[in-house]
């Protein structure tokens, strides 16, 4: 503490003694002085003055607390109560908000799921995605194309040309199909562990037309009785008519056996004649 401050404090003490003010008023005055000092910017606060003023207060109050014990206890309890109420309000409000949001989501998803079922979608997400696509400007994603399915993997191609180039298949596929009929999926099933032996199931949009290709012979058409022989540019086909009116054609070329089933003989011959890489 500086010399001037010490002098000031002594003066202050003398002044207070001589003032004949009631003790309570003096104490109140000293508290005000402390408060004024504390409100100053930190660099200007005189902490020594503050401690002197506290000592004076202590002296004047003769060790008795300025605020009575009862008052302090009452104030503490009030503060606690206020804190507890605020905490409870905050927690309840948070839980309520969460419950409302969760319930809204469940209701929303239920509604979307019902709409998806009504429109024949297996998944709500498919329904949402397609609905969004319809709302967005620009081209729709193409759902058509030809899908190649292998064990645990499938790829969809826009055209047969792209498919054959990408997959590098060795077998032949028909270039001509009945009007309105298209190849939808090509499923490759490996028979041997080294994938050298496999079978290919070709699904067409018309289920009357069935195409099956195999690296190993599933049939011995030479032994069939009453088979019709049909020679194409590439191979000889044996065609058998079934009791259900369908025609079944088998030909072998380049290490593959090609099998076709169709209910129209003329169309069948066009299909098998158009086989090409």
């Amino acid at each position: 503490m500086k010399k001037d401050d010490l002098k000031q404090n002594a003066k202050l003490k003398a002044l207070l003694r001589n003032q004949n003010l009631p003790k309570d008023e003096v104490i109140e005055l000293l508290c005000d002085m402390i408060e004024n000092e504390v409100c100053k910017p930190e660099s200007q606060i005189d902490y020594d003055l503050i401690s002197e003023l506290y000592l004076l207060i202590d002296e004047l109050s003769e060790g008795q607390p300025i605020v009575s014990e009862d008052n302090m206890q009452r104030n503490l309890e009030n503060i606690k109560k206020q804190g507890a109420v605020k905490k409870r309000r905050k927690r309840c409000s948070w839980i309520r908000t969460f419950a409302v949001v969760a319930a809204s989501f469940v209701i929303m998803f239920s509604g979307i799921s019902i709409m998806a079922r009504v429109h024949g979608y297996a998944s709500s997400w498919d329904f949402i995605l397609e609905s969004l696509q319809e709302l967005m400007p620009g081209e729709k994603l193409e759902g058509d194309g030809i899908t190649v399915i292998k064990p645990y993997a499938s790829t969809t191609y826009a055209t047969m040309e792209v498919l054959m180039k990408s997959e590098n298949f060795d077998f032949l596929l028909p270039a001509v199909l009945p009007e309105g009929v298209a190849i939808e999926t090509i499923t490759v099933m490996y028979v041997s562990n080294d994938h050298s032996t496999y079978e290919v199931a070709v699904k067409c949009s018309d289920m009357n037309l069935k195409i099956y290709i195999s690296t190993h012979n599933l049939n011995t058409p030479e032994t069939w009785t009453n088979a019709i022989l049909y020679q194409t540019d590439l191979m000889l086909f044996y065609i058998q008519k079934a009791s259900d009116g369908t025609y079944f054609a088998v030909g072998q070329y380049g290490g593959f056996e090609y099998s076709f089933t169709y209910n129209d003989y003329n169309e069948l011959t066009k299909i098998i004649s158009s086989l090409k890489a």
Partner: peptide, 24 residues
């Protein structure tokens, strides 16, 4: 119902014997 099925997709073959009266 809410999220759709969790699919497992595989190929299965079925051989039914003596369906036709004539070969094959």
């Amino acid at each position: 119902t809410l999220f759709g099925h969790k699919y497992t997709l595989e190929t299965v073959q079925v051989i039914t014997h003596n369906v036709y009266g004539e070969e094959p």
